[in-house]
Structure formats: structure tokens, C-alpha cells
């Protein structure tokens, strides 16, 4: 009985994380991975390869770049370089998430395992929920949420592969439109400090501007310039007040 109660208390954060995943974040991810499954089908990929890409790469931009590079017949090395370039944005996400996620006595192995699940949606949702959760329970909560989201996304990838070409176009458009709206609204919701709010606004302006000015490095430049300006201006504002 003692062992049983210890197990349930150990699993409680995991269960809470799984529960939180059901809702807008899961809906949004499933919508975009149905889209990815459809693209993979059209590119002639076998269904398991598309699902494997979702489970192992777990970064939508990288997966779409991979599809495109393979379809265009790029050399494997050039394709991998393009994928890696699209994944640079994961590094600041991991760097900023880990200090929030870290619990006492968290092993290096758990950190590497947790880093696998970092992606836009998981990052946004983590910043929304983790600060309100006791530190010791954060890794379990985070992993529960991540497991539920990645499994649902893998299922959505398979579904998209199967129904490819059979959905009405307005519905397809409705699916691909959910992720950007979700990121905009949840980022606004999660931005608490002046620095975060300024970074949000700077990203909105610089993202499209850099996409025109420097399409290959637009996200990196948006992050570096927008983040630095927001950080400096936000801190100056806080210290003035």
C-alpha cells in the first residue's frame, strides 16, 4: 500500500501534464500534422516514414524543409544542412526553457530526454503552466504534456497521410491557419514582463521584414535583433520606474 501511494504521487504530475495537453495545443498540433501527413503523401513518402519524422525530428519547419529538399532532389548533405539551419531556433528555446524546467536532483539523461520534446507549441505551453507548478513536479508535468502532444501529432500525421487529397480545400486552409493564430494569442498571454511584451511586438514587425530582407536567416536575425532591442529597452523601462 505504501508503495502504491508513492507511485501515484510520483505519477500525479505526469497525469496533470497529460490532462493539460488536451485542448487548444493538441488541436493546433494535430491540425498542422494532418497537413504534414498530406504533404508527405503527395511527396511519395511511405506512411511510417512520415510518422517517424514527426516522432524523431519533432519540429515542423525542419520536417517541411526535409520533405521539400528530398522532393527537389537536393544532395543529402545540402538537405541536412537546410534542416539543421531551420532547427537553430530550437537552441534559444531549450536554453530559456531548461532553467524553468529544472528540478532538484534532475539527471543529465532526463535533461536530454526533455530537450527532445522542445518545439514551438511545447515551449509556449510550458511557459504558460510551469511557473505555477512546484519545482519538483515540473519535469513530470512537462513530460506528460509532451508525451500526449507527440503521440497525438504522430496519429495526426498518419491520418493526414491517409486522407490526403480527400479534404475540402476550405477545411485544409482552416487547419493550416490554426498554428499561427495559436502562437500569436498564446505568446501574448504568456508575455508577463515588459521585456517579453516588447520582444513579442518586435518579433511581429521584424519577422516579416527579415523574411523580405534576408530570407535564409530571417528567424535568427528576428530573434537576435528583436530580442536584444526588447531586452535593452525593457530593462531600461523597469529601472526607470
Amino acid at each position: 500500500m505504501a508503495r502504491f501511494s508513492r507511485m501515484t504521487s510520483h505519477n500525479a504530475p505526469l497525469a496533470a501534464g497529460i490532462r493539460v495537453a488536451f485542448g487548444p495545443p493538441m488541436l493546433v498540433l494535430m491540425a498542422s500534422f494532418v497537413g504534414f501527413g498530406g504533404l508527405a503523401h503527395d511527396a511519395g513518402w511511405p506512411l511510417p516514414a512520415a510518422v517517424l519524422a514527426t516522432l524523431l525530428v519533432w519540429a515542423m519547419p525542419g520536417q517541411v524543409v526535409l520533405l521539400g529538399a528530398v522532393a527537389a532532389g537536393s544532395s543529402p548533405l545540402a538537405a541536412l544542412l537546410a534542416v539543421s539551419l531551420s532547427a537553430v531556433r530550437l537552441m534559444p528555446m531549450v536554453v530559456s526553457l531548461m532553467p524553468v524546467l529544472r528540478a532538484p536532483r534532475m539527471g543529465v539523461g532526463t535533461q536530454f530526454w526533455c530537450a527532445h520534446f522542445v518545439a514551438q507549441t511545447v515551449w509556449v505551453e510550458s511557459f504558460r503552466h510551469l511557473p505555477d507548478i512546484p519545482r519538483a513536479e515540473r519535469p513530470g508535468f512537462y513530460l506528460g504534456m509532451s508525451y500526449a502532444l507527440i503521440v497525438a501529432s504522430a496519429a495526426a500525421t498518419a491520418l493526414g497521410h491517409v486522407v490526403a487529397g480527400r479534404l475540402a480545400e476550405p477545411l485544409v486552409i482552416g487547419l493550416v491557419f490554426l498554428p499561427p493564430v495559436f502562437f500569436l494569442l498564446s505568446l501574448e498571454r504568456t508575455a508577463r514582463s515588459v521585456v517579453d511584451k516588447l520582444a513579442f511586438a518586435a518579433g511581429l514587425v521584424l519577422g516579416p521584414a527579415m523574411a523580405v530582407a534576408a530570407p535564409d536567416f530571417d528567424l535568427m536575425l528576428t530573434g537576435a535583433i528583436g530580442g536584444a532591442v526588447a531586452f535593452a529597452a525593457g530593462l531600461a523601462w523597469e529601472r526607470r520606474a
Binding site: P61, R89, P92, M93, V95, S96, P99, Q120, W123, V124, P179, P180, V181, F183, L184, L187, A191, S193, V195, D196, L198, A199, F200, A201, A202, G203, L204, V205, L206, G207, P208, M210, A211, D218, L219, M220, T222, G223, A224, I225, G226, G227, A228, A230, F231, G234, L235
Partner: peptide
């Protein structure tokens, strides 16, 4: 930490704006 968080926030916002525009 606050700096890196600002960088990541600007990036995700930029990506979302780009997806719409």
C-alpha cells in the same frame, strides 16, 4: 535567462507573423 527568453519570444512571434503574411 531573460535575454534568451526575449530572443526566443521574438523568434516565435516573427515565425507566426511570417506564416500569416
Amino acid at each position: 535567462f531573460r535575454f534568451v527568453r526575449a530572443v526566443a519570444t521574438a523568434m516565435v512571434a516573427g515565425l507566426a507573423a511570417r506564416m500569416v503574411l
